[in-house]
Write a protein that binds this DNA or RNA. Structure first.
Lengths: 218, 218
DNA sequence: CAATTTATTTATACCCAGTACATTTATGAT
DNA sequence: ATCATAAATGTACTGGGTATAAATAAATTG
């Protein structure tokens, strides 16, 4: 399948990884806003420009593994069981991700620290919102495509927007719950209960569309 | 009621207004990112520091009349008819605001240009998202207070988040519609149809809570 | 293996938003 | 007229991000 990349590529990836690791450590230790790019460059033993080569924005070092997380959601929208309505498929995805304890929907000390680091930084909060916005758009497109509708279909955008809003609230509340009780199990349950509550409502709003109903012709 | 402010205050407000006017004009002419704060200061004939005195962020000059817009929504949540469920009250507010053609929910060439200027600038988009986020929080608090629940009530947060997500989609789609057809009337109808569709769904999701149901004891 | 091309790293110099701090100037109060 | 206060301003700085070009290392070609 994947052939061994050449030395040039290996070194590039190694450098990138070293920068990411060093940056993550510093961000976690001292907070995003209190670490400068110059410090990261020094600590990773590379030039300042090299850092910006690999990470156009400082925030990209923090949200490094975000692309994979997005892909999981988009794949679920694209490869759903055709007998299950898109909104339902995404609700089931939430259950599966929580059950599998994926790195981005997990409730533990590490991910708590992650969330708190974001909360402490305006720049990170802004980037998190931007990522969510981009996610709304790509999810809307994926949903539309999954029912053979044009990419700018309004109901798809509405569904994507409401779903991600609900997930965001659920995630925030579940983390708050975890910080309070320290019980991952309860946090998970809280997360899913909010997702389920919102999903059924969104399904109702879009019940007359292709997103809330099962395809008739399959 | 409001007594005439003293000269000091009058001058301060005048300076502020002059900066805001000059900045808005420049932003509209050349795009937010292509106007520097120094240019604004020069054009308004004030020192650079004076600009930052009145507007801590460059973006604040653009979203100058935002605070009033927020207040309208919060007031509606607080002073609703007790026989109408909060979510319904906000749906009715949307209808009223559109009917009254409030500056922030209007569909015309001017507001189109406003929207396009935001779309062309990452900084403005980021600020718009931040404002929406703050709005979600204050609306959640207002909703919770309106039914005598604690400020961090989850259902209130869910309602606020879903409602603003829906409004945002509706606003964006209606503006897209207006740019395409140039018909304000159709754009209004599109806005309200999306708001209504989403609101009924949100109401369903929260039908067992105080936000989707009429108070029993009134 | 030597020569050449190509990708990566790096240094230098710059732009711009935003902050800290000190100073001046205009206004209000006594 | 004097004093206190608030607004406007100047200077100097921090830090993220960009443009450009030079240096270095790896791949490719003859």
């Amino acid at each position: 399948m994947s052939t061994l990349p050449d030395r040039r590529t290996r070194k590039r990836l190694a450098t990138r990884q070293r920068i990411s690791d060093v940056a993550t450590r510093l961000f976690f230790e001292r907070g995003f806003d209190h670490v400068t790019v110059d410090e990261i460059a020094d600590a990773a033993d590379v030039g300042r420009m090299t850092v910006f080569n690999h990470f156009p924005r400082k925030e990209d070092m923090f949200f490094d593994q975000d692309p994979e997380a997005r892909q999981v959601v988009l794949d679920a929208a694209r490869n759903r069981d055709p007998h299950v309505a898109p909104i339902v498929a995404l609700r089931l995805l939430a259950h599966r991700l929580v059950a599998e304890e994926r790195p981005y929907i997990r409730f533990g000390d590490e991910s708590s620290h992650f969330v708190e680091t974001i909360a402490a930084s305006d720049a990170l909060k802004a980037r998190a919102r931007a990522i969510r916005d981009e996610m709304v758009n790509s999810l809307a497109h994926a949903l539309a495509a999954s029912v053979d509708q044009p990419a700018d279909d309004i109901d798809a955008h509405l569904a994507a927007s409401l779903l991600l809003a609900a997930w965001t609230v659920a995630f925030a509340q579940a983390h708050q719950d975890f910080r309070k009780n320290g019980a991952a199990k309860l946090a998970k349950e809280k997360f899913l209960s909010i997702v389920d509550k919102a999903s059924t409502g969104i399904e109702t709003a879009l019940r007359d569309t292709l997103y809330g109903a099962i395809d008739r012709d399959s």
